[in-house]
Design a protein around this nucleic acid. Sequence first.
DNA 1: TTACTATTAAGAAGCATTTGCAGTTAAAAT
DNA 2: ATTTTAACTGCAAATGCTTCTTAATAGTAA
Lengths: 134, 134
Amino acid sequence: MHTQLNHRMTKQRQIIIEELRKVTSHPTADQLHEMVRKRLPRISLSTVYRNLETLSSEGMILKMDSAGTQKRFDGTVENHYHIRCSRCGRVDDVHMETIPEIEEIARRRSSYQSVSHIIEFTGICPNCYSQSRG
Amino acid sequence: MHTQLNHRMTKQRQIIIEELRKVTSHPTADQLHEMVRKRLPRISLSTVYRNLETLSSEGMILKMDSAGTQKRFDGTVENHYHIRCSRCGRVDDVHMETIPEIEEIARRRSSYQSVSHIIEFTGICPNCYSQSRG
DNA sequence: TTACTATTAAGAAGCATTTGCAGTTAAAAT
DNA sequence: ATTTTAACTGCAAATGCTTCTTAATAGTAA
Ligand SMILES: [Mn+2]
Ligand SMILES: [Mn+2]
Ligand SMILES: [Zn+2]
Ligand SMILES: [Zn+2]
């Protein structure tokens, strides 16, 4: 009586998951496409997009619906926070405790239901900072 | 010796600011275009985009670099948090204290510089929730 | 008024993402 | 092992949001 998901584990899907989980770099779809191509040279970009969509709706990966022009994808599903470089666009994890308490505050103030949250920090990454000081 | 900004306050720019500041709804560029058209029927969408870009780079409005397919714009410049409905996409302010302390934590953990932050809540808005319960 | 140049409207272009389709293949059924 | 079937793929074309180009227009200063 629940949704029937007849998903197949194709080579393509398997390798997309593997490559995404190898890195901590939150790649865009086309970056991931390049990574996967090393192992499957004929895979198309639309297959990457299609699978990223499927995998994220299954909760197997995270689609980062956040800042920047391109979407980014994350192999880590547990809630954690990110910091994005305003110069070069790179995204890193921030290893700190999450603060789920604020969801209850937001729920009361907004009267929305089923509240979750993300925090996105922005700053200048070490690379870009050291470049700017010569 | 600072950047000379020879910006003109045109009818179009004036009315775009006014209409954006009238609402709390964080409109997309095309929604704002429709609003402005009531007063300036011949204004083009690209003029709206161009002015929103100019105004946000001047710090007069906020370009919300956040979730969803379309960018949204905010007449309120001070840092505050938002909640977005996962069903219909509407975005509301969340009137709660901001927690700038976490920026120092993120700065130490990430070694990024000049850290700022946004919090975005997600949930089901009252409209969508009442619809779903009949 | 005249000169100067920021700004405009309209549409084309750019670019990330999605979709249609005909052929392919994983995996359930036999 | 073979058949069956619908999910999946690669490719190309389409879509949708945003930015850019261009000739005309309109603030601003002299
Ligand atoms: Mn992450
Ligand atoms: Mn707001
Ligand atoms: Zn950087
Ligand atoms: Zn809603």
